Each structure stands twice: as structure tokens, then as C-alpha cells.
Computed example of a mutant assay.
Amino acid sequence: MISVVIGGGTMGAGIAHLLLAGGHEVVLVESGADRVPAARRAVAASLGKAADRGRLDADPEELLARLVVAERLEPVAAALVVEAVPEDVELKRRVLAAAASACPDAVLASNTSSLSISALASGLPGERVLGMHFFNPVPVQQLVELVHHDGVSPEVVARARAWAEQLGKTVIEVRDAPGFATSRLGVAVGVEAIRMLEEGVASAEDIDTGMRLGYGWPMGPLRLTDLVGLDVRLAIAEHLAAELGPRFAPPALLREKVAAGHLGRKTGRGFFTW
């Protein structure tokens, strides 16, 4: 089976890793020739780390032999396309439109964590479009959130569910609504934790420890925000505030940290030092 992943950042590289490990041939598309080597290195590093930790059954080099990294999407007989580009509606629509043309028989999946699938599907063959929301780090996290809009074919949803389950993931199905299920709840807790830190209720470490030990979370909401990226969390909170009201309004502390470039693990500093 041939699968296409569009976007070679953290999520795209992780999805490519997952598909390769699941037996797929993968075309990973990254914009610009200068980004192609970095995207390939990111997938290779992810596979190598998994192998070192005993989480990969195959030789990473054998898996990489089934990976093609390209700077543009050419026509290909793919069964699945997953876009993992930044959270911008118009950008995602352009990417999905190009994929619909280049891969006429493929399921078209968006890895968006909060944007409307109906809006992304507008003007496209909507029966082929759905949300397929993976979680970071993709090879490790167990969940895939399938998001369906009114126009998607039930067969497409069933195919996407089967593929995700074959890749070892647990699937939940969610109606297309702002923030879906996971981002809506995750952001609600995350922004409240930031407000508590801003108000001096407790330290970041103590807030996170309280949620880990008191509620059984594997990771506290502030460390999770660092992992997701404060800029990503800010964009989702702004979108949810616009759609659902001021209870999702981003705290000033979040805006200040993003403006200062303290974006979490990827910059070495967020609510914690990495």
C-alpha cells in the first residue's frame, strides 16, 4: 500500500515512521529542496530511536528503503494521503486540493487538531475527506481521533479506522465540532492551568504533579503544553475562543511566552526548561 504524508515536521515525520513500520510504502512531501534532507533525517532519527529502545521489529534501513522524500507531490496511486502542514485553513485546503488531483482514489485525511473538517472539505470531493488526528509522539501515542463531517462516505471512515487499527492504534470517532473531543478538553484544562500559574495559585511543577498523582495523568497539563508547543496551543485556544466563547481565551502569560519565543521543548524553554 502506498501512502502519502504532506509536511515533514514533527508530526509528518512521526506519521511517516508509523506507516513505514506498518508495512506501507511512503511518499513524504516537504516544501522546498532545502527541507527534503532534514525531513528524511527526522524520519531516520525517529526510526533509529525506536530501534534503540526495542520498539521496532524491522531494520530501520530496510524501512527507509521504502521512503521517498519529495519537494512536490506528483501523481501517485496512493490509497491514503495525510496532510500534516501548519494549522492554517487556506494552506490545508490548497494541500488537500492538490492531493485530490494527484491521488484520485485516495482517502484524504487531515491531521488537524481543531480546524473544521467541513471547511477543509469545501470545494473538494468531500466524500473522501475526513480528520485523522494523530498525537505526538506519533509512534508511541496510542490514540487516533477520526473526525467525520456530514459529507464523508461511511466506507472512507471504515477504511481509515481499519488502517489505524492495523497500525496498532485505538480509534475514537468524533463529529466535526470545534476542537473535536481531545483538543477541546485538553485546551480547556491547559489554559486553566496557565491561568492558575499566572495567578500564583501554585508552581508549574506542583500543578503538574497534582494532575499526575491526583488524577492519574501520565503528564501534567503544563509539561504537555511544552511538548505540543506553546505556539500551537495558542493558535488552538484562539480558534476555540472564536468558535465557543471566552472560556477558551488564551491567558496573557501564554501570549507573553510565545512572543518571547519560549515555545516549549522545541526551543528549550516554555513552562519548563528542556
Rank of each mutant, 00 (worst) to 15 (best):
R184C: 02
F134G: 01
D208F: 02
E145H: 01
V174R: 07
F135S: 02
A181V: 15
L146R: 10
A204G: 10
A109K: 06
F135Y: 08
N111F: 04
A202H: 00
R195L: 13
A188L: 14
A202M: 05
V191Q: 06
D208S: 00
A181K: 00
F135P: 00
H149Q: 09
Q141C: 11
M196G: 04
K169A: 06
G190N: 07
Q142V: 10
H148Y: 15
F180W: 09
S203I: 08
L124K: 06
P178I: 05
G190T: 15
D176P: 11
N111S: 07
Q141Y: 06
R159G: 07
F135M: 12
P154Y: 14
S116H: 04
W163P: 03
V156A: 15
S116Q: 10
A158Y: 01
S153E: 15
V174W: 10
P178Y: 09
S203L: 09
G126I: 02
Q142Y: 05
V140D: 12
L197Q: 03
R128K: 12
T209C: 02
V189P: 03
A109F: 02
V157S: 14
V144I: 12
V107I: 14
V189K: 05
V187K: 07
R195G: 12
V189T: 14
S153W: 00
L120F: 11
L143M: 14
F135E: 01
R195H: 14
R128C: 07
V129N: 07
F134S: 04
P139H: 02
H133A: 09
D208P: 01
E198Y: 02
I207Q: 00
A121G: 09
G190L: 11
G151A: 15
E205P: 00
A162L: 13
A158S: 14
E192I: 03
G131E: 08
L143H: 11
H149T: 03
H149M: 05
G131C: 04
M132T: 09
L120E: 09
A193G: 04
Q142H: 12
G186Q: 03
R195P: 12
V201D: 00
L197I: 00
E173G: 13
R128M: 07
N136Q: 15
G186L: 11
V129D: 05
R195Q: 13
R161K: 13
P137A: 06
S114T: 06
A160K: 06
E145W: 07
A164D: 08
S116F: 02
Q166Y: 11
N111K: 04
E155W: 11
L130A: 06
A193L: 01
G179S: 13
A181D: 08
T182H: 08
G131N: 02
V129E: 07
E145P: 13
N136Y: 10
P178G: 08
G190W: 02
A204L: 10
R128V: 10
G131I: 00
V107W: 03
L130F: 04
A204C: 08
R161D: 12
P125Y: 08
